[in-house]
């Protein structure tokens, strides 16, 4: 016991078949890295000309115009995403503000209130909703939901119109960022709900029972144990939802009235988002305009990556602090 030897260096090599296996799996595992890298490289490569031309104006100005002469050469062009970026943020912010409380309450209901049979059924239904195609939300939102939302939007404007975001310049309530936001909210509720449900279910049982043993009501227990435990996980889930809402294309394009004008008034029927701009302009875009669209795609890509990275970080830190 007096002398402890140094650990042995193990030099045996695994068999050839295992080395091949590990290489193949590693190569496959790196596919996500390769794909994400290629996306960045190619979008940047196609968009760099426009980005260089426009500089910061690309994200601060909001006009989208291109003039070509008869030979098809570009005479003059202005590309600025500001209105679309504002619209992206506005729509997805509305979505998260609406979806977050509903999702958290649903997750709490599923974990702590629902009878077991109902819980199973609801989880299946909500998971299923996450698999609904976005074009369905778009068309349903436009034809079915919009009239109802319009009514609520008018109500909000009448009683809360003095709050700047609820102000409207003209009496146009259809196809507003608010409508798009509500539809996006419905689309991201399943995501935030399932993340929240996950973190709530990890709340330590001993602490839950301790709270009950101290005479806490169910809500008291949730406030004292579950919410503090799950808070950052829920925020992470909301960020994931935000990322999804920012990248949504077809549903937003279907309901939103896309106009190149910076509009911070959620109820006013003018807006846009980067993804739907790409769909809108792609059909008749000239080669140079396509480059601008690629640059817009790059901006959107970086934005969603950023939001997702932050979300991932937040969700991970809860996992650790909770134990």
């Amino acid at each position: 016991m007096s002398t402890v030897p140094a650990p042995r260096e193990l030099t045996t090599r695994p068999r050839l078949s295992d080395r091949v296996f590990r290489r193949v799996v590693t190569a496959g595992g790196l596919s996500s890295l390769v794909i994400l890298g290629l996306i960045t490289v190619f979008l940047a490569y196609r968009g760099v000309e426009v980005l260089r031309q426009e500089g910061f104006n690309f994200i601060t100005k909001s006009n989208w115009s291109i003039t070509t002469d008869d030979a098809g050469n570009v005479v003059e062009s202005h590309f600025g995403l500001a209105a679309m970026l504002v619209g992206t943020i506005l729509c997805s912010a509305v979505a998260v503000v609406i979806a977050l409380p509903i999702s958290v309450a649903t997750a709490l209901y599923l974990n702590f209130y629902a009878p077991p049979w109902l819980k199973k059924f609801l989880i299946a239904v909500i998971d299923m909703m996450a698999a609904f195609p976005s074009i369905l939300f778009g068309i349903w939102g436009f034809l079915v939901l919009m009239p109802s939302i319009e009514y609520w939007a008018k109500l909000l404007n009448r009683y809360l119109g003095f709050v700047p975001v609820f102000h409207v310049d003209a009496y146009v309530f259809t196809r507003s960022p608010f409508v798009a936001g509500v539809i996006l909210a419905i689309m991201i509720i399943p995501i935030i709900t399932s993340v929240s449900r996950e973190v709530f279910s990890q709340a330590p049982l001993d602490r839950i029972q301790a709270a009950y043993a101290l005479g806490a009501t169910r809500w008291g227990m949730i406030k004292a144990v579950v919410i503090p435990h799950g808070r950052s996980g829920v925020i992470g889930g909301a960020m994931l939802g935000l990322g999804r809402a920012m990248g949504e294309t077809v549903a937003v394009f279907t309901v939103l009235n896309i106009v190149f004008q910076v509009n911070w008034h959620v109820l006013f029927g003018v807006g846009g988002n980067v993804a739907s701009l790409i769909i809108l302009k792609f059909g008749e875009a000239s080669p140079y305009e396509i480059k601008a669209l690629m640059a817009a795609g790059l901006v959107l890509f970086v934005l969603t990556l950023l939001v997702n990275a932050i979300a991932d970080l937040i969700v991970k830190t809860t996992g650790k602090s909770g134990k």
Binding site: S32, I35, L36, L38, I39, F42, L43, Y45, R46, L240, G243, R244, M246, G247, E248, T249, A275, I278, I279, L293, M294, G297, L300, F301, T304, L305, V307, N308, A309, D312
Partner: peptide
Amino acid sequence: QAMSGVPSIVAGLFILSA
């Protein structure tokens, strides 16, 4: 995780460009 957040339109643009 990050890849699951790639907007579908960006995936489309990428194939278009690459």
